[in-house]
């Protein structure tokens, strides 16, 4: 069997508990999580607020350091301080797109950052690539010299996706990328993600609390609760034959009258 693209084994992370004068109980956000993403597949991670899914995502890309456990990229353990090469391969899309764009930088400068720091492209190559990226996410090149506050949530998320694509990564970790968006915009972004995956053979780790969205997009799904993965299975199995009682509760909780009335 070939190596998984990115593999995490027995990750733990807790926060707090290190006051000078008081000993507070640390919050154990992630406890013993192991996952593996294969090339070109989408792994969905569903869970409710406080389940530790965002912390897991941030550990995968290197925004948080795990307390213990290992992360392997194609079989090689990655260093605590991620290398530039790691960032070239693994990128991240934030939940709140607008807050992930520096309000004082133009879109052009925001998109040029990874091209400059990760790929070391020349100025003229950067110019070309930035326009390519805008076309990929269906934004007009005139928008490049505007500032983030001029964009709606959906447009800002496209820019976030363009930035993640800039260094031609193989894996993108998406932390609730559509949950702040209106449903008509959400569908645009989901279709865009599908298109980009087909075009570039990308692998996704897709974090969401929305089961229907995860079902539409993902090949395999892991269900998280209280920092642990309670069930992990291929999509069809998980949604048709959930085994863990919590997964069953989750599925039963979705208000779903539309499922039997919609004929579209």
């Amino acid at each position: 069997m070939t190596h998984a693209l990115l593999e995490a084994a027995d990750l733990h992370k807790s926060f707090g508990g290190d006051g000078w004068f008081t000993k507070r109980q640390p919050v154990h956000a992630v406890r013993g999580v192991s996952i593996a993403v294969r090339p070109s597949e989408t792994l969905g991670i569903v869970g409710e607020s406080g389940s530790g899914k965002s912390t897991l995502a941030r550990m995968l890309v290197g925004l948080e350091t795990p307390d213990s456990g290992t992360i392997r990229m194609e079989g090689h353990a990655v260093a605590k301080r991620r290398s530039l090469d790691f960032h070239r391969q693994v990128q991240f899309v934030f939940q709140d797109a607008s807050s992930a764009l520096n309000p004082r930088k133009t879109i052009r400068r925001i998109l040029e950052d990874p091209l400059n720091h990760l790929l070391g492209l020349t100025r003229s190559r950067r110019r070309e690539r930035v326009e390519e990226l805008m076309a990929l996410v269906h934004l007009r090149p005139e928008f490049l010299d505007r500032y983030p506050h001029e964009f709606s949530g959906g447009q800002a998320q496209r820019i976030g996706i363009a930035r993640a694509l800039a260094a031609k990564p193989r894996l993108i970790v998406l932390d609730e990328p559509v949950s702040a968006l209106d449903v008509s915009i959400q569908a645009q972004i989901l279709l865009l993600l599908k298109k980009l995956q087909q075009e570039f053979g990308l692998a996704y780790v897709f974090i969401s609390h929305d089961l229907a969205v995860v079902e539409t997009l993902c090949d395999r799904v892991a269900v998280m609760r209280n920092g642990e993965i309670v069930e992990q299975a291929p999509r069809t199995t998980l949604f048709s034959q959930p085994r863990h009682p919590y997964t069953k509760t989750l599925l039963a909780s979705v208000p779903g009258g539309l499922a039997d009335t919609a004929t579209a």
Binding site: L251, A262, A264
Partner: peptide, 20 residues
């Protein structure tokens, strides 16, 4: 309605509304 993913119908093609 067509652009909302529905649980249990993953094969249903999402149809986004263009524009804003």
């Amino acid at each position: 309605m067509a652009c909302v993913p529905v649980l249990g119908q993953p094969e249903r093609a999402l149809d986004a509304i263009p524009g804003l």
